[in-house]
Amino acid sequence: MGNMVTEILAFILSTSGWVLVCSTLPTEYWKVSSLDGTVITTATYWSNLWRACVTDSTGVFNCKDFPSMLALEGYIQVCRGLMIAAICLGFFGAIFALVGMKCTKIGGSDQNKARIAFVSGVNFILSGLCSLSACSLYAHRITSEFFDPMFVAQKYELGAALFIGWAGSILCLLGGLILCFSIGDSFPPKNSGRYGYKGSASRVSSHPRAHAQPIHQKPPPDYSNSSRAQHFDKNAYV
């Protein structure tokens, strides 16, 4: 019962993290910057993995999609690939978790379900690592440009999408680890009975009386015949 509750808790954590990772990919605010001025000229610049936009104080915004993927900067291409991989791994991890948990009726024996649950936990761990790497790489690029005194272009700050991605990655990692460690009791110790049998056999064979010849005990004397003989002798002499 305890393992079943642990698996359900791990599934909830992992699935919640995967949902946060999925919501991070289309989120607009990966990096944000603003130019303060008068009320009319104040503008907010924000960008994500797909486009860059600007919004003025009146609420009017204008967006420009990024050009061809081959013309993108390298870190954006890497972040896209890592986030897509994280979403795919989390999806398959959720499917395997539904099959491998003990509370479901599919998956076969307990050992087969435990193996499937372990694969699910590994998928969630890899999903969290991919998402964590993508968000960290993007944040490193933003911070390096912000603190670089030689960088004269528009400087940005960390957006809300990065924090959501980090939170989802941590949940995926925690859920995957708990799911992997929760299947320990599903596998019995190997050769436990065999070792016990060998130990008992070795004890019997090593005993000094194991190869001794059986001791033949003499049957108890039959006093019935002797009493009759004594009685007969008495009568004979009389």
Score class of each variant (00 low, 15 high):
V21F: 00
S127C: 05
L9C: 11
I95S: 03
G168P: 05
S182A: 02
I40Q: 08
L177K: 09
W166G: 01
A71P: 00
S127H: 04
D36H: 10
R194S: 08
S186E: 01
N225Q: 11
A201G: 11
A85C: 06
T41A: 13
S224G: 11
I106H: 09
G128N: 00
N225L: 12
V19Y: 13
L129A: 14
A229G: 01
S206E: 13
G37D: 13
A114C: 00
L126V: 02
T42I: 01
S192D: 05
V204F: 01
G175D: 04
S200D: 13
G59K: 09
L49P: 04
V19N: 05
M4Q: 13
L174N: 01
G199Q: 12
T41Q: 02
A97R: 07
N3R: 04
I40C: 03
Y195M: 14
M1N: 07
V19S: 11
A236L: 09
L177I: 15
S226M: 13
I215P: 03
Q217Y: 05
G108Q: 02
V238N: 13
C22Q: 10
Q230L: 11
L72E: 14
L82G: 04
C53L: 05
A71Y: 00
D233T: 06
V78G: 08
V5G: 07
E7K: 15
S192Q: 07
D56Y: 03
G175V: 06
S182R: 03
F96P: 01
Q111L: 07
F151T: 08
M1D: 09
S186Y: 04
D56P: 02
D222I: 09
L174E: 01
V21H: 00
A10M: 08
Q217A: 10
S182D: 00
